[in-house]
Design a protein around this nucleic acid. Sequence first.
RNA 1: GGCGGCGUAGCCAAGUGGUAAGGCAGCGCUCUGCAAAAGCGCUAUUCAUCGGUUCAAAUCCGGUCGCCGCCUCCA
Length: 460
Amino acid sequence: MRFFNTMTRRLEEFREIEKGKIGLYTCGPTVYDFPHIGNYRSYVFEDLVKRFFTFSGYRVRHVMNITDIDDKTIRKANELGLPLAEVTQKFIDAFHSDLGILNILPADVYPRATAHIPEMLDLVSVLLEKGFAYEKDGSVYFSIERFGDYGRLANIDRDKLQLGAAIDSDEYEKESIQDFVLWKGKKPGEPSWPAPFGAGRPGWHIECSAMSMKYLGAHFDIHMGGVDNIFPHHENEIAQSECANGQTFVNYWLHCQHLVVDNKKMSKSLGNFYTLADLRQRGVDPMALRYLLISTHYRKLLNFTFANLEMAGQALNRIKNFVFSLKNVENAGEAAPEIAVLIASNRNDFTENMADDFNISGALGILFDFIHEINQKMSELSKKDAAAVLTYLEGLDTVLGVLRDNDSGPLAAAVEEKIAQREKARKNKDFARADAIRSELMDLGIMLLDTPTGVKWKKE
RNA sequence: GGCGGCGUAGCCAAGUGGUAAGGCAGCGCUCUGCAAAAGCGCUAUUCAUCGGUUCAAAUCCGGUCGCCGCCUCCA
């Protein structure tokens, strides 16, 4: 198993700290609005990685933070004239609901920033004691010149940091303009917590250091996020954590490239900004979206277009149709050894591709090769063979997570009844009536398939 | 200015020294009362471009063109 470590900018063989176990921290949402599909590219990729590790036999402990206190959440609460907690809860609920819709497995812990103020204060105190931080006008800042490795993750030369205009608008006083805030002194109209160095609220980066430390320890295996987090967020986390703990913070950094829409950065002003709810309103199948989001390698820009989403849906249909065919195999007979061999060899190839920097395109290619090979033998397949293939596919889908079954049981009886009526009409050559029934079911999203072994149906 | 990425068929996309995976779309066929769906088959002498290294290059080196990201809001 190897993948690209942002820290070393190289493909590295993965070595876990504790045998068979992985501590994984992924940057979660800032809950001031509904997440957009760009956010979900990251979350879905993280899910894919986690699922593949689990598939490979690791026990993954996954922590994802929820940022429920920062400039944006405060602004939103003020805009709406509602308490901060009420506003953030609404978006937290929406977030969890979206995760379910996209078949993203839940993290083990979703720590919230506001529930970890004491841990953050402790960390800030340690940084002050050790001389890596300083107080100024009620705020506490991290002094980056005290940390020699600063800029290593982002490959940034500290002296060459080009400072943007945004800095000047910051009203806080810092010794060096590049220093970042650990604790923001209280301001009117903002929530605050008491602290030894004066009431205030946490800076953005400190929560991830404090909470990852609490739930995964001072040194853990993998930290993930979007590429935009590399600098300054993750760089600052490293500075805080390593200075406080005096040891390596994280062994492997995995960053997901952004998603663009029609080759342009998503933005509300361009009208190319989509939430999951937006897409569902347009009738988009969440599993097609998931397929699209995982099917481009994580270090490449993903261009979201409705045409690409359509293609993803069709590719997914190919897999689903394959499953459908397998479920309808009825031949008696023993399991053929050649099928078992095909499965074993395909599983090996699929795993090899995924283990090579999560080469999903290669892995999916391997899966489609397999589908093709089995399809060619479909008519000779025994029920036992089909069952073995289905079990194999279920295993792969614990990694891909795109084959969620949405057959609804109560529907079945009614559909069967309609099919029987249509078959009767067909026998009597009353094709007008037969077609009317077919069309009626089609309107309900039920597709009929007249096969040599009888009529099959599936929900579109 | 600094750091980094990308350019492979109509579209999406693997492959990073040994002679172009896979998906979508298209075309042909099978099946069918007809459809639809599905399956099968076909579809890049060629990898932005120019030059170099090599027995061998999409893959390595250099130049050129084009596109894009990050540089303290950001997944």
